[in-house]
Design a protein around this nucleic acid. Sequence first.
DNA 1: TCTTATTTGTTCGTATGTATT
DNA 2: GAATACATACGAACAAATAAG
Lengths: 250, 250
Amino acid sequence: MTSRYREIAEEIRERISSGAYARGKRLPPQKSLADEFGVSQPVVQRAVMALRTEGLVRIERGTGTVVHEIKPIVRNATARYTKTAREQGQSRGAFATEVRSLGHVPHSKLVKLGPATPPAEIAQIFQFGRDDIAAIRHRHMTADETPVQIATSYVPWTIAKDTPITQEDTGPGGTYSRLEDLGHRVTRFTERIRTRPPSEEEADFLRLGEDQQVYSVLHIAYTEDGTPVEVTQHVMPTFQWVLEYEWAAD
Amino acid sequence: MTSRYREIAEEIRERISSGAYARGKRLPPQKSLADEFGVSQPVVQRAVMALRTEGLVRIERGTGTVVHEIKPIVRNATARYTKTAREQGQSRGAFATEVRSLGHVPHSKLVKLGPATPPAEIAQIFQFGRDDIAAIRHRHMTADETPVQIATSYVPWTIAKDTPITQEDTGPGGTYSRLEDLGHRVTRFTERIRTRPPSEEEADFLRLGEDQQVYSVLHIAYTEDGTPVEVTQHVMPTFQWVLEYEWAAD
DNA sequence: TCTTATTTGTTCGTATGTATT
DNA sequence: GAATACATACGAACAAATAAG
């Protein structure tokens, strides 16, 4: 039952973990691996595919196969939404803290900003009608130049209109602090996690294949009376993240 | 860039979602699909492999390819550890509730029970020395005969010894209620989520391929003074579960 | 019950295609 | 355009599960 391509995959796995193939560097070309193992190149191709599915390597067609360098980043959901976390690091927020704690340099780029019609799933949460719109913030995040997350935030336009929430810089403490200023103090959060293959756009930025998976974390912030005031969709390669939660019993 | 096997995978995906290939039933043999699409049979094989990675189908060698029937089960971590959830359904616990709410019949089988040395990762949480052991409960869970989860619980033997925790039936409210009886009231939980390929044993019971992924949820229960008293490792196919969390701000 | 044939999925080598530098 | 590196397709041979005898 154990096939040649599995053995080769296992051997390469070991060479990576032993450091023989260094993180961030290239694997030997599939042709030379094929010669070394005495198999044809497509057999090596298949072994490498398996490693990519696991998130161990990234394949760059025409160039080579790169061993992934970033260790999983820990995202502590409970800690990241405290006021302290949001304000620290020159108002750079929780993501910066998470990435820095692993010794990497975080970067966040606002790709899209402005009012728009949210996708159906989001609209439903806000109980939107046909014409309702939301303030949208769409960001691409990297750690040491490696893309690691896409986040898209939504706040009902009736709330966000003419406030810093629609600006590039939302100010100290971010969106949640502004919502509080506006009398919408957030008291409760929910998150819903699932995994799925990346969309084409996501695969493009995150440099993923369709055989890989991303976490889709749907984060909802509620005010005291149970009204959802902010929703964020986080999309992250599963192999690059560890998700943590913490809560009190009963 | 779009290859034949991707097109075929997409076509089969559509036939599944349109109901042309019904859930729980078999796909046509790869040979006949190959004839229909005018390609060789290994090309179909590759398309089917892609669908398996996504969790859409299960391949039974020598028999055929089955379209998965179970919709994702929602695991609300916050709700499942309340006293009410643990006691309801004739002390069948949270898992039974989760599965029943989707209209399926849950079943849990205790595969292993008794004192043993826990794996290093668990031992470290309890700050165990070389000789310390734990009461272990290893369970296989199914929904409508479909395997959906493996859970392994650990309680330090010094606590669990000579208590119902080491019995097959831990009584109403389960382990947590017994811990409370013993003066170890649990007040806080943490969970750490990651995804990885299944181990051989896991793949075997959960009927997964090595190209698929499982959630590994490490659940830790702490008492008031911060001592971990119970740890459970949940292993679940990612495509079969949605994970939910809920917590209060600050 | 054992053996064999058939069906169905799996693996590999050769040939060829496509992307990147 | 040439060289390099990964990607795809096909045919043939293989292996597992089941059913028939």
